[in-house]
């Protein structure tokens, strides 16, 4: 294992990904990306619509295979070692993606069920997270009976209940109204910080990226890194400057 592999929770080395274009040729979604994400780091991936953020995400999740280069998650290829990474990754998607035939409790317990956690334990853990996310009393409700914000909370509970050390979040609050999104974002960040997980957030909002990330990576079309900045020690003035630089990177 190289030094970079050992130090990184997620590692991209010269990764490219393309898809066959509808009229022949290929559509390049990700081009020669090198990126190392450290354990416990909170990274915001920022870019305009269609710049390949979601493809990068699928590559980390092992739902897609790179055409060139390699992706490593905890030192393993997430596509080939698909089953070996069970319980190591959890995703909060842009929309809640709850199973409509399962109630809130069973939806929150889904990841645990797929990890073969015994029924009683998974129900306890799922209930714990539902209660923490303010859904006490809604355990038996089906998704159609819950509001958008409540459904997204169930989806967050589903991800947190697995105790996965890596959280991938694909604009998880973008489908919600501003007030609900703000409140949920705050609660979510507190939970991520409290549990010390590695978290990768996809967003197209500069404000969100500045609020969420300890580090911001700006992607430009096709997904190659245009700007990479750490925010931990940045003061207010520096943040203003960073915001301007992000804007400039997005415009290129």
């Amino acid at each position: 294992m190289t030094v970079a592999e050992a130090a990184s929770e997620i590692l991209f080395e010269g990764v490219s990904k393309w898809f066959p274009a509808p009229r022949g040729g290929k559509f390049v979604a990700v081009e020669r990306v090198d990126l190392a994400i450290a354990r416990g780091e909170r990274l915001a991936l920022l870019g305009q619509t269609g710049c390949g953020k979601s493809t990068l995400f699928s590559l980390i999740a092992g739902l897609a295979r790179p055409n060139a280069g390699r992706v490593l998650v905890q030192g393993r290829d997430p596509f080939r070692a698909f089953a070996a990474l069970r319980g190591h990754l959890a995703i909060v998607f842009q929309n809640d993606r709850l199973l409509p035939w399962r109630n809130a409790l069973d939806n929150a317990a889904l990841g645990l069920e797929l990890m073969d956690v015994p029924a009683a334990e998974r129900r306890d853990r799922a209930r714990h997270w539902l209660v923490r996310l303010g859904l006490s009393g809604h355990e038996a409700d089906y998704p159609h009976a819950l509001s958008g914000g409540m459904r997204q909370r169930v989806a967050i509970a589903r991800a947190f209940a697995t105790d996965a050390p890596i959280l991938l979040c694909d604009e998880p609050f973008s489908a919600l109204d501003e007030l609900t999104a703000q409140r949920l974002r705050r609660e979510f960040l507190a939970l991520v910080a409290e549990t010390g997980r590695t978290a990768v957030f996809i967003t197209h909002s500069i404000s969100d990226a500045l609020e969420i990330g300890q580090r911001i990576v700006v992607l430009r079309r096709p997904a190659c890194i245009a700007y990479d900045v750490r925010l931990e020690a940045a003061g207010d003035d520096e943040r203003v400057a960073i915001r301007a630089q992000i804007r400039a990177a997005l415009a290129t």
């Binding site: 999740a61 092992g62 089953a83 990474l85 319980g87 990754l89 995703i91 993606r97 889904l110 990890m115």
Partner: peptide, 9 residues
Amino acid sequence: LVEMVLSFR
């Protein structure tokens, strides 16, 4: 939904 379930491997 397929992607969501697959994400839990």
